[in-house]
Amino acid sequence: MKDVQKELIVNKNGPVIVIEDDADDQEFLTEIFQKLNYQNKILFFFDGQDALDHINATNELPFLILSDINMPKLNGFALREKLKTDSKLNNKCIPYLFFSTALNQKSVIEAYSQSVQGFFVKQNSMAELEKTISAIMEYWRRCAAPNDFPE
């Protein structure tokens, strides 16, 4: 049992990719991740294309992706589609969650039709934002995923 638990810990410490084009929101999220004291490196990207380029260029497996929807170059839906349809990237099984203020039924339906693992609304207060980030991180730290097992 200990060997399995040891393997599960490896992926849980991968970087968290945050795709957010608002510098203030990036600053708030940086403060929250520091306060919550997760050891994961947080990588911020202002648009989906830069995040995609990074994911393609690295062998480091991200823990999860938190993506806004409305961004320049490559929006969140287009990025999700690319990750889902590219067999090399899809095999990485990176949890993909939307984290946006763009809450409407159409967006939520489109997100889940693209097999996202969650759609979270960015709250206006730091306390609520912290609760959401904590809930996301704790859920995925406890969740078994295909990448948890050695090849």
Rank of each mutant, 00 (worst) to 15 (best):
N11K: 15
N11H: 15
K12E: 06
N13T: 09
N13A: 13
N13K: 11
G14E: 02
V16Y: 00
V16P: 06
I17C: 02
V18E: 07
V18C: 07
I19K: 04
D22L: 07
D22E: 12
A23M: 05
A23L: 08
D24K: 06
D25Q: 15
Q26G: 06
Q26V: 02
F28I: 10
L29W: 03
T30C: 04
I32E: 07
Q34I: 08
K35G: 09
L36Q: 08
L36N: 07
N37Q: 02
N37D: 08
Y38K: 04
Y38P: 01
K41R: 11
K41H: 12
F45N: 03
F46M: 08
F46E: 14
F46C: 14
D47M: 02
D47P: 00
D47A: 04
G48P: 00
G48K: 03
G48M: 00
Q49A: 07
Q49W: 04
Q49R: 14
D50W: 06
L52R: 00
D53Q: 14
I55W: 05
I55H: 12
A57F: 06
T58I: 08
N59I: 11
N59A: 10
E60M: 11
E60F: 10
E60A: 13
L61R: 08
L61F: 08
P62C: 10
F63R: 05
F63S: 01
L64H: 00
I65E: 03
I65H: 03
S67N: 05
S67E: 03
D68G: 11
I69F: 08
N70L: 15
N70C: 14
P72T: 09
L74W: 07
L74V: 01
L74K: 03
N75Q: 06
N75L: 04
G76N: 01
F77T: 01
F77R: 04
A78W: 08
A78E: 11
A78I: 09
L79D: 06
L79P: 05
R80L: 08
K82M: 14
L83Q: 06
K84D: 09
K84T: 11
D86G: 12
K88I: 15
L89W: 11
N90R: 15
N90Y: 15
N90E: 13
N91T: 10
I94R: 11
P95H: 01
Y96D: 02
Y96R: 01
Y96I: 01
F98E: 01
F99P: 05
F99C: 09
L103E: 15
L103Y: 14
N104T: 01
N104V: 01
N104S: 00
Q105E: 14
K106A: 09
K106C: 10
K106M: 14
S107Q: 12
I109D: 13
E110K: 15
E110T: 13
E110V: 12
A111Y: 01
Y112I: 07
Y112V: 02
S113F: 12
S113H: 15
Q114A: 10
Q114T: 10
S115W: 14
S115C: 13
S115P: 10
V116L: 02
V116I: 02
Q117T: 02
Q117V: 04
F119D: 03
F119E: 06
F120N: 05
F120Y: 11
V121W: 11
K122P: 09
K122H: 05
K122Y: 04
Q123T: 12
Q123I: 06
N124C: 12
S125T: 07
S125D: 00
S125I: 00
S125R: 00
S125M: 00
M126P: 14
M126Y: 15
M126W: 15
